[in-house]
């Protein structure tokens, strides 16, 4: 369950010109202005590029209604882990400096079209959006918070899976977060899961698949095992659309594929049905 894996997509190249962005999926050159105006969705291939958690929040939550929750939770180093590149502590510090975040998920509450919700938004830039003790703790605390207020809970996933540097502690977060989701189910509190690129490994095999409704962004990579691992195991080439949002829809694991520009409105529609009566 690596927290990063090669998705087969080309690396993001930096265009020389300030004018152009290169689509990470199809390598088309897009005017930077058009790319930004289109919410980082490629007009040529409809790939929904990875975006940060605050950017995502601003697209979904009504202006001025967001309040961060469990903001004090940050990374810890339960194993005192070091690898070939050095201590995990340094790696985590670098991720914090780079992103300005304290963990791989932003949690809080706000309103969607006037409906109060709790929300957890994962950020792939922070150590591949990996599920760690801190990340699992934030999601669990926020789910419990949602339960107390009877607010619908929404998770936007973007993660390569469990964070290896926290070993078994990160694996156990799968059980911890799912138990929190189970409590919401008991309370009749809606839980909506949005799977964005990528949602793999331990995150796909825990809360991300457990939504009352599972929604995916177009062409997002979603799956349990990595493509290379599967190819090495079964000694076959996999179909091109394998583990895409569209493949998951076809196989019955997501309810809808929703474009970024339509996501807020779609969530609002769904939330109408989950209102407490």
């Amino acid at each position: 369950m690596a927290w990063f894996r090669k998705s087969g997509r080309k690396r993001v190249e930096t265009a020389d010109s300030d004018l152009w962005t290169i689509c990470p999926s199809c390598s088309a050159h897009i005017y930077k202005q058009e790319w930004e105006d289109g919410l980082k969705v490629c007009p040529k291939c409809n790939y929904h590029a990875r975006i940060g958690c605050t950017e995502r929040r601003d697209l979904i939550i009504d202006k001025g209604t967001w309040r961060e929750y469990a903001a004090h939770v940050t990374t810890s180093d339960p194993l005192d882990f070091s690898d070939a590149k050095g201590p995990y502590k340094e790696k985590a510090a670098a991720a914090k400096a780079k992103t300005g975040l304290k963990e791989s998920v932003l949690t809080g509450d706000g309103k969607i079209g006037g409906i109060p919700v709790s929300m957890a938004i994962m950020d792939f830039r922070f150590l591949g959006g990996s599920l760690s003790g801190g990340c699992g703790e934030k999601i669990t605390l926020t789910a419990e918070h949602a339960g107390r207020h009877r607010w619908p809970f929404i998770i936007f996933s973007a993660s390569g899976g469990a964070r290896m540097h926290e070993g078994i502690v990160s694996l156990m977060q799968m059980a911890k977060t799912c138990a929190a989701i189970a409590r919401l189910n008991d309370l009749g509190v809606p839980f909506i899961s949005v799977l964005t690129d990528p949602t793999t490994g331990g995150v796909s095999a825990s809360y991300a698949m457990m939504g009352d409704i599972n929604i995916a962004e177009p062409r997002a990579l979603i799956g349990f095992a990595g493509r290379r691992v599967i190819e090495q195991t079964i000694k076959q080439k996999l179909p091109d659309d394998f583990q895409t949002a569209e493949y998951l829809l076809e196989h019955g694991f997501v309810d809808h594929i929703v474009s970024r520009k339509d996501m807020k409105e779609f969530l609002h529609r769904v939330l109408q049905y989950g209102k407490r009566r």
């Binding site: 799968m174 059980a175 799912c178 138990a179 989701i181 189970a182 189910n185 796909s204 095999a205 825990s206 809360y207 991300a208 698949m209 457990m210 979603i222 799956g223 349990f224 095992a225 990595g226 691992v229 599967i230 195991t233 079964i234 076959q236 996999l238 394998f242 583990q243 196989h251 019955g252 694991f253």
Partner: peptide, 24 residues
């Protein structure tokens, strides 16, 4: 868990996630 094409197609991730949720 088995990393195979069929296992993914039939929802390896969903099966494990559901067990974690229901076992709790």
């Amino acid at each position: 868990a088995y990393p195979g094409l069929e296992a993914e197609a039939r929802g390896q991730a969903e099966a494990i996630a559901r067990n974690l949720t229901e076992m709790s």
